[in-house]
Amino acid sequence: MNVLIDNLPKIISGFWLTVQLLVVSGVIATLLGTVLAGMRVSPVPVLQRAGTAYVTVFRNTPLLIVFLIVVTGLPAVGLQYSFFDRAIISLSLYTSAFVCEALRSGINAIQAGQAEASRAIGMTFGQSLRLIVLPQAFRAVVPPLASILIALTKNTAIAEVFGVTEASYQLDSLVRDFPTALWWLFAGIALGYMIIVFVIAGGASLLERRWTVTR
């Protein structure tokens, strides 16, 4: 227990980096996933195929492989980024495929008559999607999006392999230095992850209730 208390600043520092990975990757993945979802429901066949190909590739590729490709591939083509930035890119590319599918399911759940009505009054496909369809789709998929963010929280641990000093990296470092305090360290790190997950789940639940009331 003393080991956990004495090294609390280091653990907090690791979780702060984990939160940064989560927030930045989550925002980018949501934006990219929204674009991909729009491509997948687009009336333009080329966009549909491109969106489908992206989702198929990234949903069926292990995240570690995505990390390896990004971490080793970007410097090979002359793009020099920090390991933190490359971790952000990897997590965002991977997670956006799942965000896309969650949003697409929400879009498909909306009555087709609404989109048809918007086009009947002169809206383009893009305007209908942005103003009518997507706001409703986001409301419908709050729980699956929260699950994706929770999975992203756990996936940030892979960044440890590439030297990003997030929470899992700090755990490995402390376990090597204090092997007799193994269970206390595991418990402390697990509690930190649980707090992040509870915040995401609680925020999603609150947002879902609020949107349900305002419908």
Rank of each mutant, 00 (worst) to 15 (best):
A140K: 14
A97H: 09
I110M: 05
V35M: 14
D85Q: 15
Y169Q: 06
I5A: 08
T214F: 08
L17Q: 13
Y169K: 04
L182Y: 15
Y193H: 08
Y94V: 04
W183E: 03
E101P: 10
M1Y: 08
V24W: 06
L64M: 13
V41C: 12
L185D: 06
V35K: 05
R119F: 07
L63I: 14
T95I: 02
N155M: 04
T95L: 02
V55K: 06
A151N: 13
L22A: 07
A109K: 05
I121L: 12
L32N: 08
R86N: 05
N155Q: 12
L145R: 09
S105N: 12
R119Q: 15
L129C: 05
L206R: 10
L191P: 01
P45V: 12
N2G: 00
G14D: 03
L171Q: 09
F58A: 09
C100R: 02
I158V: 15
G188P: 01
L145W: 09
P43A: 03
G202E: 08
I189V: 15
I121A: 05
Q80D: 13
L182T: 11
R49Q: 14
G163K: 09
W16N: 10
R59Y: 07
L47A: 15
T180K: 06
T165C: 00
V24R: 02
A190W: 08
E160Q: 14
D85R: 03
V99G: 02
R139F: 02
A157Y: 01
V55Y: 02
A146F: 07
T72Y: 15
V142K: 02
L145Q: 12
I69N: 01
L206V: 10
Q80K: 13
C100Q: 11
E160G: 00
L145A: 06
L206S: 09
F58Y: 14
T124L: 11
F198Y: 12
L174M: 04
G188K: 04
P45Q: 13
F178K: 00
A159D: 02
V199G: 03
L91K: 02
L149Y: 15
I28R: 05
